[in-house]
Simulated scan of single mutants.
Amino acid sequence: MMVISQDGLISVTRVSQALDILTRLGETATVMAGGTWVMREARDRTFVSLANIPDLTDISLDAQTLVAGSMVTHQDLCDAITGAPDLAALATAAGKSATPAIRRMATLGGNLCTRDFYSADLAPALLALNAEVDLETSSGRQTLSLEDYLNTPVDRPHILLRVTVPRTAARSAHVRLMQRQAGDYPLAVVSLSAVITPDGALRDLRIAVGSVEKRARRWRALEALCEGQTMTSDSIRTHAALRASQDFVGRDAVDGQGWYRLRVLPALVARAFSDMSRTEQGAGR
């Protein structure tokens, strides 16, 4: 692990201070949140710690929205939302990522802002839940859908302040495939959210895939095939198998080959659908 000298770490108490430093130092400065990923950078950097900005650790949950600050840890996020059926995908993503020690340190903002971390669990879960992010930039406050944020090139300093998730009547689920049970990054991740109507049809279906490519994204073609349809685990798996190689280009890495990531996607979609359906049935009792 890289050792940071006292001169190389700047702790700020206001977002404006962090932005000023990032603007002034340019590419030689890096934001540090939980430190579980950025500390791998074995090069000269000035690290700007956000740990002492109190508002960034706030979590608010009511009937309309979940609002979580960017410095909320995975474990605190999981603890706050466990038991909410519409947020089940996010609770699972936060509660199953990495290891217990990492979950107590890794932050929501760090997970979303680290563009060279391709296996982030929270991104697909939040995409499936239609999340928005609030950013502070040198030109002021900005709100983007998470989807737009992940697809926006990082061309100027910014601080991710918070994530907002609308509460809905949907149910959700999150599944991941691991090489081993703990400590590894997932080979593929699927998050799914939908309203299941009384006649069994899917409405407002959102499917997101992570770790298969370099960036988590919605699976819109599969959503379109299944929206408004009465599906089973087998039928949605069949649809996913027909679309996977057309809609994704699997990435090759030391932990897994691209072809294998595509091959397992249909089974993960079926598992996510099954988990979501069980949640729906439980809510209706």
Rank of each mutant, 00 (worst) to 15 (best):
S233E: 11
S233H: 07
S233N: 05
S233F: 06
D234W: 00
D234A: 08
D234Y: 00
D234E: 12
S235N: 02
S235P: 03
S235V: 00
S235Y: 03
I236L: 03
I236D: 00
I236T: 00
I236N: 04
I236F: 02
I236K: 01
I236E: 00
R237W: 01
R237E: 10
R237K: 13
R237Q: 15
R237V: 03
T238V: 14
T238M: 09
T238E: 13
T238Q: 13
H239E: 15
H239D: 13
H239I: 11
H239T: 10
H239P: 01
A240W: 00
A240G: 04
A241L: 12
A241H: 08
A241R: 12
A241W: 05
A241T: 12
L242F: 04
L242G: 12
L242M: 15
R243K: 12
R243W: 01
R243P: 02
R243D: 07
R243C: 11
A244F: 03
A244E: 00
A244Q: 01
A244S: 09
A244R: 00
S245G: 10
S245K: 09
S245Q: 11
S245H: 09
S245A: 13
Q246N: 11
Q246V: 13
Q246K: 07
Q246C: 13
Q246A: 15
Q246R: 08
D247F: 03
D247T: 01
D247M: 00
D247S: 04
D247R: 00
D247L: 04
D247H: 04
D247E: 07
D247A: 02
F248M: 06
F248A: 05
F248W: 11
V249E: 14
V249R: 07
V249I: 14
G250I: 01
R251D: 04
R251V: 10
R251G: 02
D252C: 11
D252V: 14
D252H: 08
A253D: 15
A253I: 10
A253V: 09
A253K: 06
A253N: 14
V254F: 12
V254A: 10
V254N: 07
V254Q: 07
D255E: 15
D255V: 05
D255T: 04
D255I: 05
D255H: 05
D255Q: 09
D255G: 06
G256N: 05
G256Q: 00
G256D: 00
G256T: 05
Q257R: 11
Q257T: 07
Q257E: 14
Q257L: 14
G258Y: 10
G258W: 10
G258F: 13
G258H: 09
W259Y: 11
W259M: 14
W259T: 15
W259H: 15
W259D: 15
W259Q: 15
W259E: 15
Y260A: 08
Y260F: 15
Y260V: 07
Y260R: 08
Y260G: 03
R261V: 05
R261C: 07
R261E: 07
R261M: 12
R261Q: 12
R261F: 04
L262V: 13
L262R: 07
R263G: 05
R263Y: 10
R263V: 03
R263F: 10
R263W: 08
R263C: 06
V264T: 14
V264L: 09
V264P: 06
V264Y: 05
L265F: 11
L265C: 11
L265G: 08
L265H: 08
P266T: 07
P266E: 06
A267I: 08
A267R: 07
A267D: 14
L268W: 04
L268T: 04
L268P: 00
L268G: 02
L268M: 11
